[in-house]
């Protein structure tokens, strides 16, 4: 039996005017994003359960590297499972 990979965690992210994340709330604290390592966009399922996301691989200052994404349909931010 195959289970889902893990629940996505909604996070509060402050983006700049171009949509790039500047800071996020992590473990109850607002943390500055030190660098964005990668940025990619996915779009899938337009025929049914549509998905449109902007992914960012970010490094928070004095913290781990995460993949976060902005859901372009709901305009919400999510943290994907686990830091690196």
């Amino acid at each position: 039996m195959v289970a889902k990979l893990g629940k996505l965690q909604e996070v509060t992210v402050t983006p700049n005017s171009k949509g790039m994340p500047l800071s996020l709330v992590y473990k109850g604290q607002r943390r500055k994003i030190a660098s964005v390592h990668e940025h990619w966009r996915i779009a899938d399922g337009w025929w049914g359960d549509e998905v449109r996301r902007d992914y960012f691989r970010i490094e928070i200052s004095h913290g781990p590297v995460f993949d976060i994404y902005r859901d372009r349909i709901s305009d919400r931010w999510y943290l994907t499972k686990g830091g690196r």
């Binding site: 039996m1 195959v2 289970a3 889902k4 990979l5 893990g6 996505l8 996915i42 899938d44 399922g45 998905v51 996301r53 994907t80």
Partner: peptide, 22 residues
């Protein structure tokens, strides 16, 4: 103990593509 398994090879949405199995 689980392992990551590919569920749907055709999708690019991570949580739809991979899952955990025994």
């Amino acid at each position: 103990l689980k392992k990551i398994t590919e569920i749907d090879h055709d999708t690019i949405v991570p949580e739809r593509r991979f899952g955990l199995s025994d």
